[in-house]
Write a protein that binds this DNA or RNA. Structure first.
Length: 572
DNA sequence: GCCGTTTTCGGCCCGACTGTTTTCAGTCG
């Protein structure tokens, strides 16, 4: 079995938890956590870097020791150090850490005093009210553990961005209406436009004691008030989502927004810069000694550490701070840059609108062009088209184009990549099209080697233009199929093929790290909605957000181009 | 365990809230 970055990250993160329960040096623990994150977010496979004898200790947060441990994991599949730790600390204990409110100290106490190792044993001890007897525990702790235990068995996955969007809007309206509230903004991973959101962080500016905290905890969707203070409160909504509300006053707004937007790693990196300049940054501002010298806007905060404004989508400590320092931050693509949509279906296959309705909806969005890309016959459930049906459909598009004003329909197809790497329609038909999107819709279970070969072989066809939803994942529903994406992107670069960023909020495929890799290798991206209705053309914003997280600029995107330039690019 | 335009040793981001406490540890973000 090949070792993936996520395997290595998982091992390091287990080591960190184990050391934490052991009561080890917190900075050593943090080193393992940082390494787990660094490896986990890398866009290239570490095992491949080792094959090429690259020096892993060049990676930030990876030194000689951890580089050696990574090599050990890649070569042997496991880590001796972790196996040793597991003889000292029962690995089941790590499950207990998932309970909010139980940290390493309390978990250790539960194990030491009551011999509790598993969630089941914890449940029993709760029933017998043994927990409240322990030093440092009490009735409330016991009740909280009990609540949490119930909650995680229903284990809520992280929210898709689109769902977070739906939940947060009415809450913002509600808070906005409270008297004395000057400004409300969502921060956190929502503002960074992460594809999924763990909880919602909302920031308000209020006049002194305007009572917004009280109003917040009485919102009709609140199931439980986790904590309530004068500057911060936390609630659980009925949907299971946790929402944090923080109140600051106006002079601290920028500092607070920066702080609560995160990411944590980004904040730490920025604060380190501040320390070097003898400054201190917290959510109230930037301070020299006790004096606040900035904090009203985010720009002010960045300025104090010698940086230009960094867009929230980039704030992951993935090189944005160095890029900002060297004045090479990307100017990220925006929704306004988008001139058309390159992936849409109509009622002919599994869409819900007809050609004309789709064309008019696209024109209303101010687009210059819309590509109609029906499924090919292999996707029988979607009534995919065979060669003759597609040719007739192309005639329909031609006829409609003659009548249309202000928008051009492009003739495309979403043709299946079959198991042997061939395309599901003959070349003589593909040659009639403006371009193709080629997608995998079957045999997701192939080995990484076979899946990768399948896709790259398909790219050898001269009519292959864009690889549709390249990983096949559905967020929270279906894992990506096993494929060596770095190899696929490299192959696309060599053959001058393109990759899709499917903007459907369930897909957002490519992910941000692969987008960055595609950009580095010079592979252009089509940001496309895969719309099956006029309404879903609106998903473009999710695609643009995801693209921004991948450092994508207008020039990296196919559909920021004028039609004439686009046509030239689409010719292979 | 990592890291270095003051350092190869001695630092490592910073604050709010809770619960169990007689002044603060633990946890979280």
């Amino acid at each position: 079995m090949p070792i993936h970055n996520s395997d290595i990250a998982g091992i390091f993160s287990r080591v960190a938890d184990m050391l934490d329960i052991k009561g080890e040096n917190p900075f050593r623990i943090r080193a393992y956590q940082n390494a787990a994150r660094t490896v986990g977010e890398l866009s290239r496979d570490v095992s491949e870097m080792i094959d090429r004898e690259e020096d892993l200790s060049e990676l930030s947060g990876i030194g000689k020791d951890l580089a050696g441990k990574i090599a050990e994991i890649v070569q042997t599949g496991s880590l001796k150090f972790l196996r040793e730790l597991e003889t000292e600390i029962p690995p089941e204990l790590l499950e207990l850490l998932k309970i909010s409110g139980l940290g390493p100290r309390k978990v250790k106490a539960l194990h030491r005093e009551l011999g509790i190792k598993t969630l089941a044993q914890l449940k029993d001890a709760l029933k017998e009210h043994k927990i409240r007897e322990l030093e440092g525990f009490g009735e409330k702790t016991e009740a909280n553990i009990s609540d949490e235990l119930e909650r995680i068995t229903g284990s809520e996955p992280r929210l898709k961005l689109v769902i977070a969007d739906e939940i947060v809007k009415p809450l913002l309206d509600y808070l906005q209406k409270s008297s004395g509230v000057k400004k409300v903004e969502v921060a956190g991973s929502y503002r960074r436009r992460k594809e999924t959101v763990g909880d919602l962080d909302i920031l308000v500016i209020q006049k002194k004691d305007a009572g917004v905290m009280d109003r917040f905890v009485h919102y009709e969707d609140v199931k439980k008030v986790v904590s309530q203070g004068s500057t911060r409160s936390t609630v659980l909504l009925k949907s299971g989502v946790q929402v944090d509300l923080r109140a600051v006053n106006e002079v601290s707004y920028g500092a607070a927004l920066h702080y609560f937007t995160g990411s944590k790693a980004h904040n730490i990196a920025v604060r380190k810069l501040a320390v070097k300049k003898n400054l201190k940054i917290n959510e109230y501002g930037v301070f020299r000694d006790k004096k606040r010298i900035a904090g009203r806007t985010e720009e002010e905060v960045f300025e104090q550490v010698g940086l230009p404004f960094i867009p929230p989508e980039l704030r992951e400590d993935r090189g944005e701070i160095e890029a900002a320092r060297d004045h090479r931050l990307p100017s990220l693509v925006t929704l306004k840059d988008i001139r058309g949509d390159l992936h849409a279906h109509t009622r002919i296959t599994d869409g819900h609108a007809d050609l004309k309705e789709m064309a008019e909806a696209a024109r209303e969005k101010g687009y210059e062009y819309l590509a109609i890309t029906e499924h090919s016959k292999h996707v029988a459930v979607a009534r995919g088209l065979n060669a003759e049906e597609l040719l007739r459909h192309l005639d329909d598009i031609d006829r409609l184009n003659e009548k249309l004003d202000g928008i051009v329909l492009l003739k495309g197809v979403e043709v299946d990549i079959l198991e042997d790497g061939s395309l599901d329609l003959p070349d003589r038909v593909l040659s009639e099209l403006d371009f193709t999107i080629c997608s995998v819709h079957s045999r997701f279970g192939l080995s990484s080697k076979k899946q990768t070969e399948r896709i790259i072989k398909a790219m050898d066809n001269d009519y292959f233009r864009i690889l549709g939803h390249p990983s096949g994942r559905l967020i929270n529903e279906r894992a990506p199929y096993d494929v060596d994406m770095a190899q696929v992107i490299t192959a696309a670069a060599k053959r001058e093929c393109f990759m899709e960023l499917n903007a459907h909020p369930d897909r957002l495929d490519l992910n941000d790290r692969h987008l960055l890799l595609a950009k580095e290798l010079g592979v252009k991206i089509a940001i496309s909605t895969d719309a099956h209705s006029t309404e879903s053309l609106n998903y473009m914003r999710f695609g643009v957000w995801q693209a921004r997280r991948g450092w994508i600029e207008p020039d990296d995107v196919l559909n920021t181009r004028k039609l004439t330039d686009l046509r030239r690019l689409l010719k292979r």
